[in-house]
Design a protein around this nucleic acid. Structure first.
Lengths: 130, 130
DNA sequence: CTGTGTGTACGAATAATTTCGTAGTTCAAA
DNA sequence: TTTGAACTACGAAATTATTCGTACACACAG
């Protein structure tokens, strides 16, 4: 069973929900409006569809419904990563990582953080097969 | 001017072209057939559209046209990476990298390779601002 | 010459996504 | 109580992507 990735419009909604926590359609639409023009009913429809798909859950106890995501941000990130990994990088995580860090303007702080993370990974690898 | 990312079907075609070099529709379709069922004219149409979009170039000098990609694999990878980075990781390359390496079964060899790469990156960072 | 195999062109059906108008409900202020 | 603002529901248009059937061109074997 492989997970499905949210569409672009859905991801925009999820990003707001992950950042702000459970929100109403109006709140989401308000945030999205900062980035681009988008009608209220457009956002509403997207969120209704997401609820039907099982991406969101909504609390209907008050007249103004409150939505919250059903998937963790990190799980969604992983799913999307895996898709990119397999569709564009032939499954090679190292190629992907180097592409991500390559000509990008990653800060030294970030690079240090990654190296620390990498050392941990290598540490955990000791005693493993392969 | 921001670059456009190929669709899923287009990416499948590009993957074959990058691996095999300039090819005919039949050759591409043959390769794609190994993975999934796909009609010849479907592949043809996709490649015609890609040519119209400027993703492919074709040599019509022989009756059987020969197609080749107009974008480098690495450029396309970067473009797709950037899109994922901005749409799902808030632009944080380190989050993305750690997600990629996290619970994934990356081999020790790969991790070593990445660390080497990382050290180079840090080396080049010396004397830079930030 | 004629049929068969291999090609391309093109239109159209289908599907998925995104966008938004309209209708109807509810609540509360005037 | 009437009115208007804020909501939800729903249908449908617009867009993009995917898939494939059909038509027609060309080459070459028989």
């Amino acid at each position: 069973m492989s997970k499905s990735t949210p569409t672009d419009a859905e991801l925009e909604v999820l990003n707001v929900l992950w950042a702000k926590g459970p929100s109403t359609v109006r709140e989401i639409n308000e945030m999205l409006s900062h980035e681009k023009e988008v009608g209220y009913t457009t956002t509403l429809k997207i969120m209704q569809i997401m609820t039907a798909k099982g991406l969101l859950e909504r609390d209907e106890s008050s007249r103004t419904h409150v939505y919250k995501p059903l998937m963790k941000e990190s799980d969604t990130q992983r799913t999307m990563m895996d898709k990119l990994l397999n569709s564009a990088f032939g499954g090679s995580a190292s190629k992907l990582v180097m592409q991500a860090l390559g000509n990008n303007k990653t800060t030294k702080a970030e690079l240090d953080e990654i190296r620390k993370f990498l050392d941990d990974q290598l540490e955990n690898k000791k005693g493993d097969r392969e």
